[in-house]
Design a protein around this nucleic acid. Structure first.
Length: 552
RNA sequence: GACGUAAUAACUCAGUGGUAGAGUAUUGGUCUCAUAAUCCAAAAGUCGGGGGUUCAAAUCCCCCUUACGUCACCA
């Protein structure tokens, strides 16, 4: 085991629906690959996430569906948890913010900051729905924009002209819930102070830690536009109630104030489950904390989190790196859970259970690293057929079949390598180094691309050495031996990207944990491999048509 | 409106001052161990438009166009 410890976090998905391919591509897959890389290289790591189960959206959804918020979160929490498992996301703990442990911890932090007088009180006017006895978030009130007269402007922003509106500006406001006019009602809430000095301090710190430009510029913007406080309590009936403070005991903590603490409460939960103290990780200077998030919640990780946690207990660490991804689109259109425009994971698993790794491949190779990227079923088919079958699966199959035809499945040994063999193996090594480099730079797209390139080298080597028509037995042995060496490397790396395939390959190669010595696959003398089996399934044009019908 | 990000072959992208690159798709050839897969080759680009700096610009600077994102009670 190496000295550095890691905490890997994947942003908590909001539990108002199933997770979709955007969650996987933007957050869970990058985090998963990174964590798998750490495990493969014998680092100590914990990989945590959980469901974000509070907030006004879930409340609204429960009202619309005539059910309770608890029913909603129960339905989706277990669904998401199961789906993450099926996609082999290597989480150590998937927790939930409605759990007692989380509530207790969040309140502890909240009360401490309150007692330190870290919050300020401020009165504001807020739209209020009398029928439901509910304060309405700005987004749930629409009306006519006072500037451009757009009819469906939100009460805080008009999406047509882009102007930011103040509460009360909107003409003819209507509650989305009831279709009736809401009233403006005064309310007192608590606000978290964003001290400019501290933001500048964080900015410089992040710069030193080599956070990416996107984040630095985002924070720089915060310094410039003089944001100094954010409301951290809400007037709704769903969330973590602030019981102990009389004045606010009918209000809840703003969802992101507590959700951001979910990583820590998830760790507390893990500690109970395993009877081992993982909270130490959070207070150890040598721990590397890496957050994987989407671009929609930069502010909570870069500003909320350090402000909250350092004032609670300054021993807690802040992230060494925050990996921010953009959004994945489908056929050029934005994904939306609430508008039901997404490829949901449950549906994918139902109709295409044998294509989990194919989807993982496409989502990794299309990961929205620098800018929004696009998913199409044609790409999915193409990747599956041309890359996974044509290049990778085919290469694997060729070797296995040849080994059976030439040596009855026994692995050749006592080989003397030629210069060319050594050149090829050396080249493969260079690609492995590249893959490692790309992973450490969070460029998983390039990493998986280089991974496929190793199979390309292998295919080329085979077509040059042509063991199927070679007469000299030593040459055949050598060719297949070198091919197997390449295949060993591919196998090892497939653990990072394609977990199902990895297991299938191990089975066909007839090896288990005992064959791994110092991280290398070692075949014992006279080792016999199993019969070849198809590891990827072909997608015909007909099948593609059917898929499109189901999902589009 | 403010701020930010981007624009490179049909598609997806790599390329931060020195003769335009890769994969996919297309076309031709090759192999026959392999899931009509491999391998080789061809064709394909005024690097969004305009101006500037430079011996030299996809790359640096300025202006414009287009797309996308963020903008302090959505998460």
């Amino acid at each position: 085991m190496k000295n550095n410890k890691y905490i890997i976090t994947a942003a908590l998905p909001y539990t108002n629906g199933d997770i979709h391919i955007g969650h996987l591509s933007g957050v869970f897959l990058p985090a998963d690959i990174y964590n798998r890389y750490l495990k493969l290289n014998k680092y100590k790591s914990i990989f945590i996430s959980g469901s974000d189960e509070h907030g006004v959206n879930i409340l609204i959804k429960s009202i619309n569906e005539n059910t309770s918020p608890v029913n909603i979160i129960n339905k989706y929490h277990y669904m998401i948890k199961k789906n993450l498992k099926i996609f082999k996301i290597s989480l150590n703990n998937y927790f939930r913010t409605s759990n007692k442990i989380h509530k207790k911890y969040s309140l502890k932090v909240f009360y401490k900051l309150y007692n330190k007088k870290f919050f300020i009180e401020k009165a504001t006017y807020q739209y209020y729905d009398k029928l439901y006895n509910l304060f309405l978030a700005d987004r749930f009130v629409i009306g006519i924009c006072p500037i451009c007269n757009y009819k469906e402007a939100y009460s805080d922003i008009c999406e047509k002209c882009g102007n930011v509106l103040k509460i009360g500006d909107l003409k003819n406001p209507i509650s989305i819930l009831t279709g009736k006019k809401p009233v403006l009602k005064k309310t007192i809430n608590l606000f978290l102070l964003f001290k400019k000095k501290y933001i500048i301090y964080l900015y410089n710190k992040y710069k030193k830690l080599k956070y990416n430009n996107k984040i630095l510029k985002y924070i720089y913007n915060f310094i410039k536009i003089d944001i100094n406080k954010r409301s951290i309590t809400r007037d709704i009936k769903w969330g973590i109630f602030i019981k102990k403070i009389k004045k606010f005991n009918n209000k809840v903590i703003y969802v992101w104030f507590e959700a951001i603490l979910g990583y820590i409460s998830s760790t507390i939960d893990l500690s109970y489950k395993r009877k081992k103290n993982y909270i130490k990780y959070w207070k150890n200077k040598n721990t590397k904390l890496i957050n994987f998030i989407g671009k929609d919640n930069i502010v909570f990780h870069t500003l909320f989190y350090p402000i909250i946690i350092k004032n609670y207990n300054k021993k807690y660490i802040i992230p060494n790196y925050i990996n921010v991804n953009e959004f994945l689109k489908i056929n050029g259109k934005k994904i939306s859970t609430s508008k039901n425009k997404a490829i949901f994971i449950s549906k994918f698993i139902k109709y295409l259970p044998n294509y989990i790794d194919s989807l993982r491949y496409t989502l990794i190779s299309e990961m929205p690293i620098n800018k929004d990227s696009n998913f199409t079923w044609d790409k999915f088919k193409n990747n599956n057929n041309s890359i996974l079958i044509g290049i990778f699966g085919n290469y694997f199959n060729r070797i296995i079949v040849l080994l059976h035809k030439k040596f009855n499945g026994y692995i050749p040994n006592n080989i003397i390598l030629t210069k060319y063999d050594k050149y090829i193996l050396n080249k493969v090594n260079k690609f492995i180094n590249k893959i490692n480099k790309y992973i450490l730079k969070y460029n998983f797209r390039m990493a998986i691309n280089e991974f496929i390139n190793i199979s390309r080298i292998g295919n080329k080597y085979l077509s040059i050495t042509t063991p199927w028509k070679e007469k000299n037995n030593e040459n055949i042995k050598r060719s297949l031996y070198v091919s197997l060496e390449i295949l060993k490397n591919i196998t090892k790396i497939s653990y990072l990207f394609l977990p199902y395939t990895y297991k299938k390959i191990l089975k066909i190669l007839n090896i288990n944990k005992n064959n791994f010595i110092n991280n290398n696959i070692i075949f014992p003398l006279n080792h016999k491999i199993n019969k070849p089996k198809i590891i990827f399934k072909y997608i015909t044009s007909n099948k593609l048509k059917k898929i499109k019908l189901i999902f589009e």
